Amino acid sequence: MLVFSEGRAADPLRVARESDEAAAAALVARVHPGSTVEPAPGESLWDGTYPPDGACYAASFEGVEIVCDRRLMEHRPSRMPPHLLAAARRDRVFFHVMHSVSDALTFAVWEGGVLVRSLSLSPDSGIVENIGAPYEFEAPFWAGARPVKPDPWWGEDQPPYPLAFHPLELGEEALRAFAGFVLEGRLHPDDVDADAVPLHGFRVTDPNGPDPAQVWAELEQRVAAMRLRSHTTIQFGANRGQDGA
């Protein structure tokens, strides 16, 4: 997800009920230059952060614009293609990606075109990118106050979680801090009602690019293979321990 805003995105999102469809389509065209952009069924912000293959949800409100597209997951913030930042036409850019299958989180913030914070990490890859000073909402996580508790379903001999905190828990706090809403967890009284924020739907096709469904299927296969290797290593280590080797 990319959120383009002037200052706090939460303020205009609290009253956002009708998006400019033409402006949203133009935004999608800037995000996907050279691609064919066609209207498709829309969604609410609550349900639209994870669009289907080849789909893109977007909205343009007074003071804030949003693009939700799974193809954005491919980008590392420090290497963000310039056209994506230029698509904003606003002072602040917030980039947010979470993937529950791999417990992966990436979020970044640009102010006036300058990258001021970027964090990308997962249990399998570790910390991939950590640029800029952490925000205040990150402090408890880095201080060890939000550790991952052992899952009783895994048994007593499970290894500790590879990171000091769960990336998706931090991801929810980042989402609240810069977009004003969360997807999971306890709601705050002043959280944005994401279910009331409409997004337009678009089908985006790159005439010179690979089929989006095939690309995503290959990505899912790679993630599944990584998790299988990780689980096999854990089981192997546990078996060796039981054998006294």
Rank of each mutant, 00 (worst) to 15 (best):
His83Asp: 08
Pro134His: 02
Phe202Ile: 12
Thr106Cys: 15
Ala177Glu: 13
Arg89Pro: 04
Trp110Glu: 01
Ala108Leu: 07
Glu129Arg: 08
Glu74Gly: 06
Asp53Met: 05
Ser120Lys: 06
Arg229Asp: 14
Ala10Ile: 02
Ala24His: 03
Ala55His: 07
Ser118Met: 01
Leu170Glu: 01
Glu220Pro: 00
Asp191Arg: 04
Asp20Glu: 13
Asp243Thr: 13
Ala194Lys: 03
Pro198Arg: 05
Ala9Lys: 00
Tyr57Glu: 08
Pro162Phe: 08
Ala177His: 10
Glu111Met: 11
Asp124Asn: 10
Val109Asp: 00
Val28Glu: 01
Glu184Met: 11
Gly48Glu: 01
Val192Gly: 00
Pro51Thr: 12
Ala225Gly: 07
Asp20Cys: 09
Gln235Met: 15
Leu115Ala: 07
Pro140Leu: 07
Leu2Ile: 09
Ala26Tyr: 01
Pro189Arg: 09
Glu18Gly: 05
Pro134Thr: 06
Trp154Ser: 11
Leu84Trp: 08
Val204Tyr: 00
Phe236Arg: 14
Pro33Glu: 08
Tyr57Cys: 04
Met80Gln: 11
Ile131Gly: 01
Ser19His: 02
Val67Gln: 00
Ile127Glu: 11
Pro159Val: 09
Gly112Gln: 11
Val93Ser: 04
Asp193Tyr: 00
Leu121Arg: 03
Pro134Leu: 04
Leu13Ile: 11
Thr233Lys: 15
Ala133Glu: 13
Asn130Thr: 03
Arg17Glu: 10
Asp211Ala: 11
Pro123Ser: 12
Glu136Gln: 12
Glu220Tyr: 02
Leu228His: 12
Asp124Glu: 13
Ser118Ala: 15
Glu220Gln: 13
Phe137Asp: 01
Leu119Glu: 01
Trp110Gln: 02
Trp153Glu: 15
Asp103His: 14
Val128Tyr: 01
Leu85Met: 10
Tyr57Asn: 05
Glu169Phe: 12
Asp195Tyr: 04
Glu65Thr: 12
Ala139Ile: 06
Leu115Trp: 07
Asp193His: 06
Val128Pro: 00
Gly132Trp: 01
His188Ile: 00
Leu2Pro: 00
Glu74Arg: 15
Gly185Phe: 05
His200Trp: 09
Ala87Cys: 03
Arg176Cys: 04
Ser102Cys: 12
Tyr50Asp: 15
Asp193Pro: 02
Val31Thr: 05
Asp157Val: 08
Val37Ser: 10
Glu43Tyr: 03
Met80Cys: 11
Arg90Pro: 01
Gly113Pro: 10
Gly7Pro: 11
Arg8Met: 11
Leu105Ala: 07
Pro12Tyr: 06
Phe4Arg: 00
His83Ala: 07
Phe4Thr: 00
Phe141Val: 03
Leu84Lys: 05
Leu85Lys: 06
Thr106Gln: 10
Pro147His: 03
Pro167Tyr: 09
Met1Phe: 11
Ala145Tyr: 05
Leu72Ala: 09
Arg176His: 08
Pro160His: 02
His166Arg: 14
His231Leu: 14
Asp20Ile: 08
Val37Thr: 12
Pro81Glu: 09
His200Asp: 08
Glu136Met: 07
Gly63Val: 07
Ala55Glu: 10
His188Trp: 12
